[in-house]
Design a protein around this nucleic acid. Structure first.
Lengths: 213, 213
DNA sequence: TAGATTGTTAATCGATTAACAATC
DNA sequence: TAGATTGTTAATCGATTAACAATC
């Protein structure tokens, strides 16, 4: 349905979702945009506008039902489904993500981890045997995998992506410190850790400079 | 300097930096905004505008010197310095970051890792003994630490941040799946992994929907 | 000089915020 | 009903893109 939601709004949805989860955890079942504004540090107008992108489920004079709102956002983000996930690259990051319980809880089920390094293939990572990347084609034919996480060194990132896409993967979560190009119709989301660290470094410099004045 | 650089520009700088590193690796020493535009998928006007924020070091009729440009961006991001880093939380993510070689290479030197879990304190992580969080105050008085990485469960994130800030830490890289509040004068950069995964989930849904039409 | 490419101004686009009428 | 709060339109702000004059 509907009006084409802007990327800026989409990026805020997880934040709303986290906040609503917290409220639910505290047993709060009603919330107003002004209260959200206070606690989340967003403008109340913006919040109302954001939440209205998917058809108003607030109630004038009352506010929003926490339960309803959270459920709705989950639906929009696709969190009402379960996803099977594989990890490409059994290095530190790959292994850490393999064991990241939160994802499991949220419906992202990491089923297998792959590597091309003979030293790693066959080893156990959290009770799962590292698979040989060369078996990926037949593996993906058999199993129903929704999302692949690329945790390879940057040199292998693009070829991993190409491989995955050629075998029908439609969503890539890329942790390699480089961008990967894919054809339209494939979703990519980058987590460029060092980019984020660089921005922190910049901010730190600015803070220090600011303090000096 | 200067004119107050916009956040949107800052977020693009690491991407320029990565691209210029690649060029340098290939031995290319001259680049034009139109070529960058082609290869990076950004608008050429935007690139020229971005790079001009810090005082033009392009050359009309010629382009930009890769070496000079990269060096300049590094300086702006603060990558011409070295930083001492500690990690709070010796779980999977903390341990993975501890071993992330790239950071070291870029001047971010992870010196110690802390935890509050007696089962973890004293254990070895990559040749470093996990420190007790209760020793943090005296530790920070002795050592010169620039950046702290929060890798705790979300319940501990805010109190960790409070602790760090009260002991003088000026930059926090937050991996906990929650926002932390700090006073002005402290830089925070969030890596909300699940937020990113949720956005991927959304994009995937959109792609599938798009394909259906 | 002629050709190329930057630096910069002006135009466009999109996102945020303010204001208020609709309505529970 | 009166008070509160949403939904929505209008105003503002910021970011992107186009265009072109400056200049190497």
């Amino acid at each position: 349905m509907s009006e084409k939601i802007s990327p800026a709004v989409i990026r805020r949805l997880p934040k709303y979702y986290r906040y609503l989860e917290d409220l639910e955890g505290k047993g709060i079942d009603k919330i107003s945009s002004s209260q959200m504004s206070l606690e989340m540090g967003l403008n109340a107008s913006q919040i109302r506008r954001d939440l209205n992108c998917f058809g108003g489920f607030g109630q004038q004079g009352y506010g929003y039902s926490v339960r309803k709102l959270k459920k709705e956002i989950a639906r929009i983000l696709g969190l009402d489904q379960r996803y099977n996930v594989i990890i490409i690259g059994a290095g530190r990051i790959g292994q850490a993500l393999m064991g990241y319980k939160n994802f499991m809880l949220e419906g992202f089920n990491v089923v297998d981890i792959f590597d091309n390094d003979p030293a790693k293939v066959g080893a156990e990572v959290l009770g799962r045997e590292v698979q040989n990347i060369s078996t990926l084609a037949s593996y993906l034919k058999d199993k129903n995998i929704d999302i692949a996480i690329i945790c390879t060194p940057k040199e292998y990132a693009q070829q991993s992506a190409d491989l995955l896409v050629s075998f029908g993967i439609k969503a890539i979560w890329n942790f390699a410190p480089t961008d990967v190009a894919v054809r339209r119709g494939v979703a990519v989301e980058n987590v460029h850790l060092s980019d984020s660290l660089y921005v922190l470094s910049y901010k730190l410099k600015e803070k220090i400079k600011g303090a000096g004045i």
